[in-house]
């Protein structure tokens, strides 16, 4: 693999998720040269668009990239990859770079939620993943947003407008859906219902975190990290501050690009 850009080393990380494809190009393993997020995941045109888009944004060609690591649900079908790592390892590497010293990473993705434990040196040491159902994942919030005729990205702002919580007691997506509908029928203000939804999802996510014993500092990554209401509810449930980053959705792709950089140097 060549390097047409002088002594700089460019590596690419592709996080091919179930609902979105994200690519990051790193320059010399430190500087984010470009990134793309396509809201179409494995098995669609999303991965190719994210890949071509990130190269175009960085003004690079495939030959300029020293190494490509793919991660995420669709990692094994991403033909451009030189290397493949699990999304858990990718998120751990990315989170250690985004939040130096972080010990617990809560990644809430579209279909699943995972909690990662990192060593003091920032190496993945243990993890748990959600099982059985979609409660506590981005999918739960999407379903609830749809009933409320909101876009999922509006949930954070809505939560901020609430004066109190409507108290959605069920953590099960199906039962919570009926609770939300009855709250709507009662005329409960939507922001209060949204806050209740976040608290319900937070209870479920927090139970996953407790399966690992929470070690601080902790950070939240994945698309849901952009939802301030959810972060507030989760922080309250766990009784701690949670770090977030505006680039949290890129954490897996960033980690994959960093992994590629480390491998390129070997």
């Amino acid at each position: 693999m060549g390097n047409a850009m002088g002594t700089d080393i460019y590596t690419l990380g592709a996080d091919i998720g179930s609902a979105a494809s994200k690519c990051v190009i790193l320059k010399n393993g430190a500087e984010m040269a470009a990134s793309t997020v396509e809201s179409a995941g494995a098995g669609t045109g999303g991965p190719a668009r994210a890949f071509e888009g990130v190269l175009a944004k960085a003004g690079l060609r495939r030959e300029d990239i020293a190494m490509i690591t793919a991660t995420g649900y669709g990692r094994n079908s991403f033909a451009e990859a030189d290397l493949v790592i699990s999304e858990l390892s990718a998120h751990a590497i990315g989170a250690a770079a985004f939040f130096p010293g972080v010990r617990t990473v809560i990644d809430i993705g579209g279909q699943d939620a995972k909690v990662l434990r990192l060593t003091e040196a920032g190496v993945l040491d243990n993890f748990v993943m959600n099982d059985k159902c979609a409660a506590g994942t981005g999918r739960f919030l999407e379903v609830m947003a749809r009933i409320l005729e909101l876009d999922v990205t509006q949930l954070g702002d809505m939560d901020g407008k609430a004066e109190q919580s409507a108290g959605i007691s069920s953590t099960c997506t199906v039962f919570a859906e009926s609770e939300v509908i009855s709250q709507l029928a009662k005329g409960t203000p939507i922001p209060e219902i949204v806050r209740g939804i976040h608290e319900s999802a937070a209870v479920r996510t927090a139970s996953l975190v407790r399966r690992m014993n929470l070690v601080l500092p902790a950070a939240v990554t994945g698309g849901v990290a952009q939802n301030r209401g959810m972060i507030r509810a989760l922080g309250q449930e766990l009784g701690c501050e949670l770090m977030i980053s505006p680039d949290s959705q890129l954490c897996g792709a960033y980690g994959a690009a960093l992994h590629a950089y480390r491998k390129a140097g070997q």
Partner: peptide, 23 residues
């Protein structure tokens, strides 16, 4: 790893096993 005789999608397990092997 949670398994079930009616399981058809092993992707989550694939990720978990791969991460375990990487650790």
């Amino acid at each position: 790893l949670e398994v079930d005789r009616q399981m058809v999608n092993y992707e989550q397990i694939r990720s978990a096993v791969q991460a375990f092997a990487e650790m």
